[in-house]
Design a protein around this nucleic acid. Structure first.
Lengths: 96, 96
DNA sequence: AGAATATGCAATAAAATCATTGCATGTCAA
DNA sequence: TTGACATGCAATGATTTTATTGCATATTCT
């Protein structure tokens, strides 16, 4: 876990929209982009465009926090807490 | 600890320069701006201007991660790990 | 095949971040 | 009281982030 990886992970966590996406993916894995958009609107009242959500998901994926799996024409997103654990374990724990 | 506070904390951690400042303040508290600048140069070889460091320290202070104390003409900075613990405790631990 | 569905790609544009430079202010010390 | 020291404030600019819009591609269903 190098410095750039820590950057990506902490930056990914530094946005409330992305934290809520993580919240929901933790409650239920394998959600499609449309499901995430619908829940963002239903639960947060957030009127974000689909592309905005896509870009957030891309960041989460590049940070290694979200894994992707294709099923036909739908892209299923699943939370991977591994990098989160690694980041906390390597960096945060020495500072607490 | 509201959403904005989490934003400030995680964004503060999302920059390598700030993480190294935290590292150093953890090893030794009550460091002045000049000390931090000097060590940034000596240890990292980073040629950051004094103002750049000042702005990073401001962000850390606004995130509640650094406490400040004046001693004459020098401003002493000290790490406060409390908000870090709170953020990890409230948000991260439910996701690990 | 044609229509509806689910997503990707690309070009913006506004706002925030990161770093710099120049000048000003307050404090200590000779 | 002058000079050196430690920091603050403000303006600027480059880069990144955040969100939008429009069009394209691929898959499923009838």
């Amino acid at each position: 876990m190098d410095d750039d990886a820590l950057d990506r992970i902490f930056k990914a966590l530094g946005d409330p929209t992305r934290r809520r996406i993580i919240d929901r993916l933790r409650e239920r894995p394998r959600q499609s982009l449309f499901e995430i958009c619908a829940l963002s609107f239903a639960q947060d009242g957030a009127t974000l465009s689909r592309q905005a959500i896509t870009q957030h998901l891309d960041m989460l994926e590049k940070a290694g926090l979200v894994r992707v799996e294709w099923s036909g024409r739908t892209k299923l997103h699943t939370l991977d807490a591994g990098p989160l654990r690694a980041a906390v374990g390597q960096w945060l724990q020495t500072h607490l």
